[in-house]
């Protein structure tokens, strides 16, 4: 069959066969291995990226945990400080109270002792005064005339 422009089916088929062999060979020898390597490299970098992202995430988590912990530590310190201040205040108050109580006790004991001393002094003074009075009376009696006493006694009797 004569086709225009000397188109030859046999040669078309030969070209087709040649190109099929070439493209299959190029696919097997170049395209596929290089494509696989490119994919391998992409996977490698993706893996690196994922790992880095994972590490970053972990670091961020740690950072937030530490921050939280730091915040808690501050509040804990505040609590401990407040508690210590409270305890100190309570201890101081107790000490003061104790001191006051002791002071009051000492004062009352001193008062009591002073009272007893006074009473004792008064008693002694009374006794002395009485003895002095008796002595004075005895002295008067011994020095004055018995008449005067008699007269006095008689007047008292008449009355």
């Amino acid at each position: 069959m004569n086709l225009p422009l000397n188109i030859d089916l046999q040669q078309i088929l030969l070209h087709l066969l040649n190109f099929a062999v070439l493209s299959f060979g190029l696919y097997l020898l170049l395209y596929n291995p290089i494509k696989k390597f490119i994919k391998k490299r992409e996977d490698y970098y993706r893996d690196l990226d994922n790992k880095a992202e994972e590490k970053l995430k972990k670091a961020e988590e740690l950072e937030s945990a530490y921050k939280k912990r730091l915040e808690n530590v501050e509040s804990e310190i505040k609590e401990i400080r407040a508690k210590a201040a409270e305890e100190t205040k309570q201890a101081t108050d107790a000490l003061l109270e104790n001191a006051r109580e002791q002071a009051a006790k000492i004062v009352s004991q001193a008062r009591e002792a002073a009272q007893k001393e006074r009473e004792k002094i008064l008693e002694n003074a009374q006794k002395e005064i009485a003895s002095m009075a008796v002595a004075a009376a005895e002295k008067l009696l011994s020095q004055s005339a018995t008449d005067t006493l008699d007269q006095f006694l008689l007047s008292v009797k008449k009355e």
């Binding site: 040649n18 190109f19 062999v21 070439l22 060979g25 190029l26 020898l29 170049l30």
Partner: peptide, 20 residues
């Protein structure tokens, strides 16, 4: 041109095999 096609294909395939 078919001889050229065969030569080109052979050259490319040999080069590809060496590279591979």
């Amino acid at each position: 041109a078919f001889i050229s096609a065969v030569v080109v294909s052979a050259t490319l395939l040999v080069a590809a095999a060496i590279i591979r």
